[in-house]
Simulated scan of single mutants.
Amino acid sequence: MKTRNIYLIGILLPTLLILGSCNSIKNLKTAVEYDKQADFNTYESYKFDKELSYSDTHDNYSSQNQRAFENAIHDQLKKKGLEETETPNLHINFFVVDTQESQSITHTSYRNQRYGGMAHVDTYIKEYELGTLVIDLVDVSANKLVWRGLANGIITGKQDDMEKTINEAVKAILSKYPPKS
């Protein structure tokens, strides 16, 4: 019985960890800044700005993904009680910045005395894509930015996973709207 439990732990635990780690964004960090004078209770409607600053700097950010960003933002704002109209209180603008980053990683291992006891050093370069999504809410009547949220993380998914990545990032950002005073 004990052997069976150890076997199950040895098989199931790594499997669960692997499945749990299939997120499409690693190390997601969010930040928010907002106008402390703005009354966020008065904002009831929004519209996407006609001149979106959408960045198409990488294949991950196709027009299909732009629609996914808009849909995710729409869904989250709708959950917050805002509705999309032609005469909104808020204009929504978002943009994406992605950069290719690299990190040098060095591992040192020591060989057994039988092989001379020498150190062996391996160095390799890890390359990854760092993505940043910025969502701006602009007060239409004052023509002033009143809220900005951003999410930053390492993008690990492929194009097929991009909608999940987008939804994760948008949900994380807009979970902080409206700001708690």
Rank of each mutant, 00 (worst) to 15 (best):
S181C: 04
T42K: 11
T132E: 12
G157D: 09
V134G: 11
G157N: 14
P88C: 03
P178C: 00
K180Y: 03
L77H: 02
N89E: 02
I154A: 02
N5R: 09
S45E: 01
V134T: 14
N143I: 06
G116S: 01
T108P: 02
K158T: 14
W147D: 13
G117E: 02
L17T: 08
H58V: 10
G116R: 06
D136L: 10
N27W: 07
Y177G: 07
E44I: 09
M118Y: 15
N65P: 03
L90W: 01
K144Y: 06
L130F: 08
T57E: 12
T87A: 06
G10M: 09
S63W: 06
V96P: 00
N23H: 12
N152F: 03
N167V: 13
Q37T: 15
K47Y: 06
L52V: 01
K26L: 09
Y110R: 04
A38P: 03
L174E: 09
G116P: 00
N23V: 12
K126M: 12
P88Q: 04
P14W: 08
I9A: 07
N71C: 05
T106S: 15
N152K: 15
K79D: 06
Q64S: 12
K50W: 06
I125V: 15
Y61I: 01
R114A: 14
F48P: 01
L82H: 07
Y7W: 13
R148A: 09
V96G: 03
G116A: 02
R114L: 11
S141N: 12
I25C: 02
L28N: 07
L150V: 07
L137H: 03
V146W: 05
A72E: 10
F69R: 10
Q66P: 03
N27Y: 09
P88H: 01
T30L: 04
D49Y: 15
G157H: 08
